[in-house]
Design a protein around this nucleic acid. Sequence first.
RNA 1: GGGCGCGUAGCUCAGUGGGAGAGCGCUCGCUUCACACGCGAGAGGUCGCAGGUUCGAAACCCGCCGCGCCCACCA
Length: 861
Amino acid sequence: MPERPTLDGLEHKWSAAWERDGCYRFDPSAPRERVFSIDTPPPTVSGSLHVGHVFSYTHTDAIARFWRMRGRAVFYPMGWDDNGLPTERRVQNHFGVRCDASVAYDPHFKPPAEPSEREPVGISRPNFVELCLALTATDERAFEELWRRLGLSVDWSRTYTTIGARAQRISQRSFLGLLERGEAYQVEAPTLWDVDFQTAVAQAELEDRERPGAMTRIRFGVADDTLDGVRDALIETTRPELIPACVALLAHPDDERWRALVGRDALTPLFGTRVPVLTHPLVDREKGTGLVMVCTFGDVTDVVWWRELGLPVRSVLGPDGRLTDVPWGAAGWDSQDVERARREYEQLAGRTVNQARKRIVELLTDANDVVGEPTPVTHAVKFYEKGDRPIEIITSRQWFVRTVAHGDELIERGRELSWHPPYMRARFEDWVNGLTGDWCISRQRFFGVPFPIWYPLDAAGAPRHDAPIVARDEQLPVDPSTDAPDGYDAAQRGQPNGFVADPDVMDTWATSSLTPQIAGRAGDDDELFANVFPMDVRPQAHDIIRTWLFTTILRSHLDYGELPWRNAAISGWVLDPDRKKMSKSKGNVVTPMHLLEEFGADAVRYWAASGRPGADTAFDAQQMKVGRRLAVKLLNASKFALADLPAEGPSLTSALDRAMVARLARVVADATDSLESYDYARALERTEVFFWWYCDYYLELVKGRRYDSGDADDRREGAASVSRALRRSLSIFQRLFAPFLPFVTEEVWSWWRDGSVHQAPWPDADEVVDALGGASTDAREELALELAGAVLHEVRKAKSQARRPMRAPVARIVVHDTPERLAALELAADDLRLAGSIDVIDTVDADELAVDVELADDPAQ
RNA sequence: GGGCGCGUAGCUCAGUGGGAGAGCGCUCGCUUCACACGCGAGAGGUCGCAGGUUCGAAACCCGCCGCGCCCACCA
């Protein structure tokens, strides 16, 4: 035991020891009922870890450490989510390359010595993926370093990546299973599309952003001018550039204003295209003129109307977000005046939507088809969460996984799952109930898991999408852009009657949704998988319920017909002091390593573990100071309790010792119950409150007896009792704090115990009974402890007010209280006298507690 | 528009039917033999507002106000 214990250096000392001793290695021989398996979020490695990660991963670690001490074989691997767009962007810029799926793999490829962002080198997908792997490997080392410094009790021998061969194999295998069972399908349909990344995106990846726009009232002509009264059809839109893509006008079925028009045709301004006027109950009579223009496609409502009313497609928007050329006069592009339509449209073709919007308003104004002035509005526009321009809806061929058909089953799965806190289930149900389409899993990107699919080419060299060639299971993982399907020669790639690869990769969530299978090595190590799946708990933050949690449940439901885990432990966010979410773009991010260096890992963990499950928590360095103080206190209290301690007695003979142990027993029960129900914050709080009381009152009350081990039998017995109480209670405190403060608890444990505290058994009621050594406790003794504390407090107050030191002698105190309570206090009188340096304790019967304190003369005066 | 959560001391937050609490911050004091990375003491609150249930409400119910998040068919 060190002379002056310190927290400095504990992180390096103990994390090295844990690694050396394999302290956190999973025991694969443990039977399933003894396994506790955790499906940890694999952090995205192309960013950097922020304090929010530290926050929620600490919660998980506390849970992991608790169950390990409960004797479970804890399966706690870490994964890195390196698959996806953010990595692609970094690799393109860092190496000056771009991925071209049509380029052949070059095994000797070296990135350009002088990378040029302007003229990137086109390389094959496997070469591109190799560069991604090289770059992410560096990030992953830095992340692991941070996690070790934070003290996560991860089994580092089981780390996986979402782009690794195993993840790709499992992901492709699952996809092929879905395809075989008809749960995955390919279709050409309107798809959410990001025009900058030029890829399809999923509903779950959208977010709303408030954007300024202009509401323009526009006059459509009416084809049949025999109508009385209504000569013009007026609509309002924020997207006038889509007028050439208009396929219908809609009114509400009960709207009298437009009834005369319904069933007739209107003519689009500028282009003179006939569009029917129809009704649909989703039309809002209160909005605009009550008449709405349907385009292919301006927003997701257009898709609903288009589908339900069987409208034609008239598409003007290209994948790059610019208006394409359209063949006026050809099928589907009719016009009253083809020459004019062509002339007007030339003003728009090739422009971005924003440019086209501005121009068409000018054209409409010149044609006198704008009614009044456009009104500025602010409206919510859907964006891809990583994108810079609004998403568009573009028709393309994509892969989907069925979700809508399984909505009710998924709701039922959500009810089987134990949610912590329970109200988080509502977010899951809201999301499932709000699903509007199946899950689009294909992305027109490169750094992802490829679809294990080829298509035969017909004699004309056109792919036959209706007859995909699937990879054999033994081939997985496969990259169809370099590997050839069975029965074909590599030279037939792209040739008539040959084959072609599916060009897409899977959405990153299509692989991340399989983390229980990847970590558990499904299909590769069936014994392991059976032993860890379904997992015990999925810890994650609430913002990814709709993505990660939802898709993981979906995949497990579709592949195994059961939940992927029994519990979901949902954590909140870290907010900055202004209660805004911390994010890089706001510049309010605190780097975790800096915090660990300044306050120490235990202190940072203390702050994190104080955040209640599911609750957003403000970043607060002050709380870290408190955590550091607690860790230092544990060092010093342990030193006091253990240094030169008299021999331990066979039982607790002193009332205060027994009463303290009785209280401790309740704290153990409370902390255990809390941790079992994933409320780590409550367990920490109860333990901490009691520990401070223990230090401030119990230790002070028994300090005299601890040192005063004179020769008299009763004194020896009293000292032996306090020795027993101190050793037993300290041992329990050290273990109660171990899930939260792993470093300092390991340090103090090592002073007097063999092995790691993190493999020691979690304290329980039996242990408390054992500590008592055959003695029993009663309410009177606990009352004695309470009263002794209260009287000590009064004595301290008197000394404080007299500006005397705490050890200043007290000639006499008079305690007023009821006879019953005074009798109880008598049990603690000897300890109280020593603790307060009190010479005489007198008592007076009274209705309630009061203490008169007569300090001895101050020798200094 | 719908759903969920939150509103308690200057700050961060415990407290789900019976004495309004903790830590930080603030003030004062103490070289104290585990700890000055400390110890002791003190000041500080109409528990968002209004009603109801109850012998009794910070807590339970209804309504309102405010904040946050999620969702929505935001033309």
